[in-house]
Design a protein around this nucleic acid. Sequence first.
DNA 1: CACGTTGGTAGACAGTGTCTACGGCGCGTG
DNA 2: CACGCGCCGTAGACACTGTCTACCAACGTG
Lengths: 218, 218
Amino acid sequence: MTEESSLRERLIDVGIDLVLTEGSASVGLREIARRAGVSHGAPRRYFPTHHALLSAIARRGFEDLAAMFEAAAAGTTTPRGQLEALARAYVGYALERRGMFELMWRHDLLDSAAQASDQPRLRESTLPLFGHITGLVARCRAERDGAQRTDGPNEAAPPPAVTAAALWANLHGIAQLWAWGSLQLAFGTPPPDGDRGDDQPDRLITAVLDAHLGPVTS
Amino acid sequence: MTEESSLRERLIDVGIDLVLTEGSASVGLREIARRAGVSHGAPRRYFPTHHALLSAIARRGFEDLAAMFEAAAAGTTTPRGQLEALARAYVGYALERRGMFELMWRHDLLDSAAQASDQPRLRESTLPLFGHITGLVARCRAERDGAQRTDGPNEAAPPPAVTAAALWANLHGIAQLWAWGSLQLAFGTPPPDGDRGDDQPDRLITAVLDAHLGPVTS
DNA sequence: CACGTTGGTAGACAGTGTCTACGGCGCGTG
DNA sequence: CACGCGCCGTAGACACTGTCTACCAACGTG
């Protein structure tokens, strides 16, 4: 099945492999064709341009990310727990599949606005994710409001969509800055290629959740 | 003065111009040389490789950003106000000087780890920024703690460095996601090349500040 | 069997980053 | 004043890239 699939899928697979091992920069069209065992003109039959192939690869990344969210959310039932799992999955994905995460936001390499004739636009791949976060934030706040109504200074919390956007942006920034190495050396931990320190982002993530949703009430 | 400077500076200037007008992607070494009026091999005299020239350009970007922070902080005196100005300056810079902002975090294009013989490492260019944020957060919290000590559920706020990192990451994520267009369509405003909606990031920024520092107490 | 379509090959073209050899210019020294 | 020597920039080559085009071998169908 996986060995004799159509060349189109094989090119995407090889591309993903290349993005993950090498950086997202050196994913040449000819290199993908080479590793797929075909001539350099072969991909053109399925992808009119290099960007189209990269977009297909990135689309797979968004699908993987969505699947990872569902898997993470299956563990717990409370909205706060699901948000926590989602957050951990997001920056976890960015850190362990760094090249893919980079590629997914390189709008200069992707046809983010064009649609591939039947697929939805690549830019809108993040919409369900955002909707998911918004829903969880709303549920989370509803639970909180139902439980205790005594805390005074909670005046005029922003609507769930704003909080969700802020939370998402926060996770995204953590992922990118951590991948770049800035946050590590801000924390004093030596960043150069030392894979240790994987708990530090966790500390940041819980801090961020507390900030945006309020501390845990249990 | 500016017209007859050394070629080295002129190359950087032309590169910045190119990055700002065209995207950060198409800043070819030969193109810079062409627009500077020299042959394609000339830059090599001052920058051993393409990445070195791009790193010099990015370094200028970090300097500009730092200068913009100082200018923004000069307006107000309260730490909260300075943080607000800094936040607005950060995402403002990212939005109006988009190409530069993109380039600055493209660690696949920059010699982020190597140092240019006398300049500090490019990766550490963000350290003073982070230190600044941390200091402001600490001052902000000290003021808050001095004012009112009555709110109960403020148990165990994270150390200032963690809050500063979270805040910075949040601004960074807002800048990037907004530049990509995801946040716009998450908010319903049409993102495709419509420059309108510049107030929306402002709403996000204030929400983010409130979340990380607590709502304004005035 | 002839035929057109599908799926891939191979070569060409412009353009890129890097490397190397070569010129011209100015400047200090004999 | 001549000479030589660095500095600074030019020009060409090389390998490589993405895109385009012509070609070609199967293959199922009439």
